[in-house]
Amino acid sequence: MHELSIAEAMLEQALAALRAAGGGRVVRLRVRVGELSGVDPDALAFAVPVAARGTEAEGAQLEVVRCPARVECEVCGATTAVEWPDVRCGHCGADRVRIVDGRQLRLESLDVETPAAALDGG
């Protein structure tokens, strides 16, 4: 269960991006989690609110885009999604394939709100 340390790293990046963009309150974090990233999205969803506590991202929604593993075939050149447990070409069935997708763990974007008081000119 290393998702807490990953959540902390993610929050650190998010808050740095937030400050660079002028601050506010993070209401949504959008992340891409690859099937081969070694990260469990459910565990991450549990860890992020804990890591966000007391920060400008407290209470933010976590939107996880799950990215399936994909392979490129060295024989026919097709790129297909892996049908577990068989890592082979979904087009021609060859097992000479290269993993081309599914390892990512990326913080894509933040949705940020400026406090209502600031909007109202307060």
Partner: peptide, 15 residues
């Protein structure tokens, strides 16, 4: 009131 900040960063980039 919401705006989107694009980050596009590898979470384990430091590692």
């Amino acid at each position: 009131a919401a705006r989107r900040i694009e980050v596009g960063a590898d979470v384990l980039a430091a590692n």
